[in-house]
């Protein structure tokens, strides 16, 4: 469904992606792991056209993602940003229901609000949060509102950029289960970035490791522990010794 073909992206002299090749089949949950600053967020953003690759192509359903009707294309996606990226001028429920309050998916206000409250509940937030403003929430709560917004319009393809960072272990468990449910029940295709290895095991069908601008290793999550790849092994064990330098 999503295919990266030799994608390159540099910011000035900082060559971030140096030929990424990756395939995510429809209805699968792909988890991307990799050190901080290796370009995982950039890879996700380049699918959505928020970052323009310098060369290489990203195909979605066999079509070049940078061509064609961008609005219709984006309507199929939901994205949780690493920093939440909530609109701080709008109350929480209007953030979650943003798509449902305007544009082609517009519906009556009460209905949109009811959906927002239901999505908030799914990410473990009570109804009274709905009328607060994002700035009044804790970091973890903001993250979960961002997650609720990403899934509000039930998109077919969902990107989660570090969904459990900053959450307590119980809430992480709730979110992992939610992501799994979305993939299994709704048949969505998911691409998740995470540093949390328990999250990887809970969410992933397949895992890909990004390092030095390329996909070092990719395979089913079951094969991750005996991948035979020194980078993956070091990443899983969290050891300072290995091919990945600690100073990057």
């Amino acid at each position: 469904m999503i295919r990266f073909e030799n994608v390159h992206k540099a910011f000035g002299s900082n060559r971030v992606l140096r030929g990424v090749n990756l395939h995510i089949p429809k209805g699968e949950s792909m988890v991307i792991i990799g050190g901080s600053g290796t370009g995982k967020s950039v890879a996700l953003k380049s699918v959505l056209g928020l970052v323009k690759p310098d060369s290489g192509t990203i195909f979605v359903d066999g079509k070049d993602a940078s061509e064609g009707d961008h609005d219709a294309f984006l309507a199929r996606f939901g994205m949780l940003f690493q920093g939440g990226a909530l609109f701080d001028s709008l109350p929480v429920w209007q953030n979650v229901a943003f798509r449902l309050l305007r544009g082609s998916l517009k519906r009556p206000t009460e209905e949109a609000r009811a959906i927002a409250v239901e999505k908030l509940r799914r990410v473990g937030l009570k109804e009274e949060v709905a009328d607060r403003y994002p700035a009044e929430l804790s970091g973890g709560m903001q993250k979960r509102v961002g997650l609720a917004r990403a899934i509000a319009a039930e998109p077919e393809i969902i990107f989660f950029d570090e969904p459990t960072t900053g959450l307590d272990p119980i809430m992480s468990g709730v979110i992992n289960e939610l992501i799994r449910e979305i993939v299994v029940e709704m048949g969505a295709t998911a691409m998740t970035i995470t540093h949390d290895m328990s999250s990887v095991r809970a969410i992933a069908d397949k895992v890909a490791m990004l390092h030095d601008g390329v996909i070092q290793w990719t395979g089913p999550v079951a094969k991750m522990d005996d991948s035979g790849d020194p980078y993956v092994a070091q990443f899983i064990s969290g050891s300072a010794e290995g091919p990945i330098e600690a100073v990057r």
Binding site: L50, L74, A75, F81, F98, S104
Partner: peptide, 20 residues
């Protein structure tokens, strides 16, 4: 200041992903 802050906190990117 408002729009710049929105840009810095990726709210402009979020708008785009929400087809706006």
């Amino acid at each position: 200041a408002e729009i710049a802050t929105m840009k810095v906190t990726e709210q402009l990117d979020a708008l785009v992903t929400l087809s706006t």
